[in-house]
Design a protein around this nucleic acid. Structure first.
Length: 485
RNA sequence: GGUCCCAUCGUCUAGUGGUUAGGACACCGGCCUCUCACGUCGGGAACGCGGGUUCGACUCCCGCUGGGAUCACCA
């Protein structure tokens, strides 16, 4: 049997990184087994589902490179297009006496819950409508439709005895007492099926062999298994992944700050880094930390998944991003950096070869693309702002002549010679002439060229900046020195 | 509160009865050096507690404690 897994986000918000990790693991398991990865949109909640969320989810997945074999834009993979199927499933259960009509209103239920809480009983539904109707009445029950006056719900008749066993691929065996499971609503009074019911029908219809999801779904699993049985279907295998927590140990959510895939993309992270970080949170392969997509697929296995929740560690993600910053092909960075330059409102250089040289000098100094562009300001703009404190410290009158001399040396270099080795030679000649050490000249030059005291190696800065701009900035600095006191 | 899940450095983790308990992030120090980085070398840092089982437990069992999830006409 070929493996089929699915990822079923609901388009009610941004694609969250804790959530997308479940999708990633489902994806890796399917790819590892040369099976199919299905993307399904759980949009039965029409109130909260939005087109914008759907677009963001799809775009996030594409950006990460988590590609699906079946799913959108195919309309069959939207729950909102499968209502006929859900109605058919509900009618089947009604016909067979495995579901029943419940007349309790939302207010009734709420009152019951509060009452139970006061009396320290468990808050579940007590099943008061369970035996109110005969089999024949149930078989003829129409599905709810508030607008047509059928303001009731349909509940699943859950078994009250015995146990339901979940043999989880990650957690092992969990046994649930059936008497703990109350009769859950499968069809709302507005004629919309609920999650647990629609999911079962979908997973069955789409031939899912393995359900990979967060372990917050574990309590739902015995209910879903019972629905499979009631429908006369064989439940799939389950793999419940431990959750991702925020630094406070609570389930990761928007209140923990940046948590969406888009947020990290916009912060200048690489999809490789995010994927690599996510896959190592809850899964390991010996001591290996860096995984290419191909390696993830090759090595992935539920047996190597941990059982305990993990805390999201932004610093490790940053380190991974830095790793990819240093090792990704430079051409890739050239393409990736452009939107970030544009966002700063700066002109994007037309020369990719030059951009590549620029990036080469900065990639070991920036952990994100945003940071890299920040550092690149002096390369990308003709005018630079000189930090007053740096100027006061390094652009003193006595260094002015040396600055002018270096400018002259550089100006004399032929275009074909304008490279690091000849630039270094120009420095050496100046140093000899003035009898000073490189340390005494490099910082003033650095301030002159970049406006600050921190930059890549001074020869590479000059090489990238080019003769014209370097000379101009050095001469400007020379004047500053002269006027300083 | 009921049910379920979980428990090795601060964090992510390796470890499957006998190890100086390993790696990574972060942190601290040395080296390299034109600044900052990169790189490199080194350092501190963990088996929650109590019972068993065993010649021997981080590893197996039980209890406790602690943490988490979930108990909707959300998904």
């Amino acid at each position: 049997m070929t493996v089929r897994t699915r990822y079923a986000p609901s388009p009610t918000g941004a694609l969250h990184i804790g959530n997308v990790r479940s999708g990633l693991f489902a994806y890796l398991f399917a790819r590892h087994n040369r099976g199919a990865f299905v993307l399904r949109i759980d949009d039965t909640d029409r109130e909260r589902s939005t087109r914008e969320s759907l677009d963001e989810i799809l775009e996030s997945l594409r950006w990460l490179g988590v590609d699906w074999d079946e799913g959108p834009p195919d309309p069959r993979y939207f729950q909102s297009n499968r209502f006929d199927r859900y109605r058919e499933g509900a009618r089947q259960l009604l016909r067979e006496g495995k579901a029943y009509r419940c007349d309790c209103t939302a207010a009734d239920l709420d009152g019951m819950r509060k009452q139970a809480e006061r009396e320290h009983r468990k808050p579940g539904y007590d099943g008061r409508c369970r035996d109110k109707r005969t089999a024949a009445e149930l078989a003829n029950t129409e599905l709810p439709d508030k607008r047509a006056g059928r303001d009731y719900t349909i509940r699943f008749r859950s078994p009250r005895e015995g146990v339901t066993v979940v043999d989880d691929l990650i957690k092992g065996r969990a046994v649930f007492e059936n008497r703990e499971l109350d009769d859950l609503i499968i069809f709302r009074s507005d004629g919309v099926p609920t999650y647990n019911f629609a999911t079962v029908l979908d997973d069955a219809d789409f031939g899912m062999t393995h359900i990979v999801r967060g372990d917050d779904h574990l309590p739902n699993t015995p209910r879903q298994i019972q629905i499979f049985y009631a429908l006369g279907l064989q439940p799939p295998a389950y793999a419940h992944l431990p959750m991702v927590m925020g630094p406070d140990g609570q389930k990761l959510s928007k209140r923990h700050g940046a948590t969406s895939v888009f947020a990290y993309r916009d912060l200048g992270y690489f999809p490789e880094a995010l994927l690599n970080y996510l896959v190592r949170l809850g899964w390991s392969h010996g001591d290996q930390e860096i995984f290419s997509r191909a390696e993830m697929i090759e090595f992935f296995d539920f047996a190597e998944c941990g059982k305990s929740a993990g805390i999201f560690n932004a610093e490790k993600l940053l380190w991974l991003n830095f790793h990819y910053m240093k090792t990704l092909p430079i051409e890739r960075l050239v393409g990736d950096v452009k939107p970030f330059i544009a966002r700063r409102g700066w002109k994007i250089p037309g020369d990719d070869v030059w951009l590549a040289k620029m990036i080469a000098t900065l990639r070991e100094r920036a952990k994100t693309l945003v940071e890299l562009v920040d550092f690149a300001s002096f390369y990308l703009n003709d005018e630079i702002a000189i930090d007053p404190k740096a100027a006061a410290k390094f652009l003193k009158p006595e260094i002015g002549p040396a600055l002018a001399a270096v400018a002259g040396e550089l100006d004399a270099l032929a275009d074909s010679e304008f490279a690091e080795t000849s630039i270094q030679a120009a420095f050496t000649r100046t140093l000899d002439r003035f009898g000073i050490k490189l340390g005494q000249l490099a910082q003033p030059v650095r301030v002159a060229l970049t406006g600050g005291t921190v930059s890549p190696g001074i020869y590479e800065v000059i090489a990238v900046l080019g003769r014209e701009r370097s000379v101009r900035r050095l001469r400007n600095a020379h004047e500053l020195c002269a006027s300083a006191q």
